[in-house]
Design a protein around this nucleic acid. Sequence first.
DNA 1: ATCTGCCAAAATGTATGCATGAGCGCCAGC
DNA 2: GCTGGCGCTCATGCATACATTTTGGCAGAT
Lengths: 251, 251
Amino acid sequence: MASQTTAKTHTMRALVELRKRIIDGDIPGGTRLFEVALAEDLQISRTPVREAMSRLAEEGLLERARSGGFLVRSFAYADVIDTIELRGVLEGTAARLAAERGVPEAKLKEIGAIVQKLDLCIGETPDDVDFAAYSELNSDFHEALAALPGSATLERELDRAKRLPFASPSAFLPDNTQLSKFRRSLHAAQDQHREIVTAIHRREGARAEALAREHAQAARRNLEYIFSKDRSLLSSVPGLALVSSDGPDGA
Amino acid sequence: MASQTTAKTHTMRALVELRKRIIDGDIPGGTRLFEVALAEDLQISRTPVREAMSRLAEEGLLERARSGGFLVRSFAYADVIDTIELRGVLEGTAARLAAERGVPEAKLKEIGAIVQKLDLCIGETPDDVDFAAYSELNSDFHEALAALPGSATLERELDRAKRLPFASPSAFLPDNTQLSKFRRSLHAAQDQHREIVTAIHRREGARAEALAREHAQAARRNLEYIFSKDRSLLSSVPGLALVSSDGPDGA
DNA sequence: ATCTGCCAAAATGTATGCATGAGCGCCAGC
DNA sequence: GCTGGCGCTCATGCATACATTTTGGCAGAT
């Protein structure tokens, strides 16, 4: 959960630095990364740069060009939607498997505790919303959910999806967003969180899956709503290169 | 579909060779790969070896060790089951999205043609089964299905799952298997293939998803049946290192 | 007997020089 | 003016020497 202490090796420094630049959107999607340029920039040799790029390709932030070299992966609006869809499906599967296979009571308590802490972040009044803390805990919830069935395969897939530059909901909100407007959504999300945990506890696999999926669909609808009101927001999402595609309403 | 013409660069040679060794099971899961040893073995320097290992990690065949270096990923029986489960879920999603979003008639014709060709591989009499051709076409079917909704995100995930060493059904069959015994299963699978295509054509998303999932579940049950009769088969699956886990009936 | 700490051997991390090949622009010919 | 080939340039592919870290064993103490 906590970030790793600043890595020692050049490779790690380069990895962290490059990842940051990509996620922050400093390097737009589609950009080709040149070993020499980056090496000079980071004051290291080409070797660790190459190594770092290779790892970023594993994470899915870069892709290998046909003729060698790496490109910053660019994501279209459709990719964002599809990724949310995919996460919903995968988390639904996690919920279903957890319900079907059963999980230790202790684990359910743990995840229940997270839900309770989430409640504290979205208090009674609109000004009472601690969005940063909510986001953090929300990640914890979804991570815990992914881990419930004890399937390394599933966890791996969900982990991958979570690393994409636009994975965090906050990536879509401009800095001046009136967060209080989302209070209603957050309360609704909390209701869903609770229902999912309850369904798993009752061993209702199909219901747990449907709920987890619906939870993701709600997030997708929220997103589509935001962009339907202001399409220009699309271009301001860090790390989201809308080079090759159109907005919400298709071609 | 066809294999790429033998790669020219040392990296590519190493990549292909290593991949082969892992998938064939020449290098058991959990084995640590040493750059120097492999470099000597392949008569090249450490650099391309490292590059090849990095790419294999992207493919999911290797994993990075904590202290650097790579390990051959080892898969337990549970991983196989979970992967089939995952593929079912993902293919179900592909089928659902295809039905929901609609696909060009031409694409459906294409996939229908594959199903027809599959019929030819499992003729009327038990001796009439061309298992190799069936496997190849079956892969084509599933690949085409994955591509139907036009979601690069989904295709990418399914592609990944397909590359695992045990992905091919034939990996589980010893060389002397009486293939004719599977004729009935193959016919049943064909019925499912047809139903899936029909459901997509009729735009019945939920049904298409359920069918595709059931198709995978059937494969899983077949597998469990095979191993329930002869647990020793587990250890003979190439690339499947059953080091850390137990058989079908759990811990 | 086991634990601890040190030391040596080996493996990975890094830098750098050279080789190779893809991409691009220039020039000549049509 | 357009097209096709030629060659230059620059980025990556590869090899190798050196630095650093990890690991496993051995010795001594508890």
